[in-house]
């Protein structure tokens, strides 16, 4: 039982750390980048002002990739501890 509880605690610790990492990237894409759009606009990307590009496409692509990345890592964590449900 205590070995089990220990494994559960380590599983949760890894899950939590992954979630914190994901939320940090999320914070940057959704708040920091829009906040500094003005300075990013002096750069060009694919012909767009970079700040504008990030707000209409870049951050959005980032969110999609971030979710798939998290799910890939979380599946690995679940399997490592034998708690995957599929």
């Amino acid at each position: 039982m205590s070995a089990n509880a220990d494994a559960a605690a380590r599983h949760w610790e890894k899950t939590r750390n992954l979630t914190i990492l994901v939320l940090i990237v999320w914070f940057i894409l959704s708040m920091v980048v829009p906040w500094i759009t003005n300075s990013l606009n002096s750069m060009n990307f694919l012909g767009f002002p970079l700040g504008y590009y990030m707000c209409v496409q870049g951050s959005l692509i980032g969110f999609v990739v971030l979710i798939w990345f998290q799910n890939w890592r979380q599946d690995a964590i679940d399997e490592e501890f034998g708690v995957a449900d599929e």
Binding site: T19, V22, W26, C55, V56, S59, L60, Q70
Partner: peptide
């Protein structure tokens, strides 16, 4: 207005992680 574009997509990161 782009706050809606970012907000209505970025919210899914919260849905997924939390």
């Amino acid at each position: 207005y782009l706050g809606f574009i970012i907000g209505w997509t970025g919210g899914y990161v919260l849905v997924n992680s939390l």
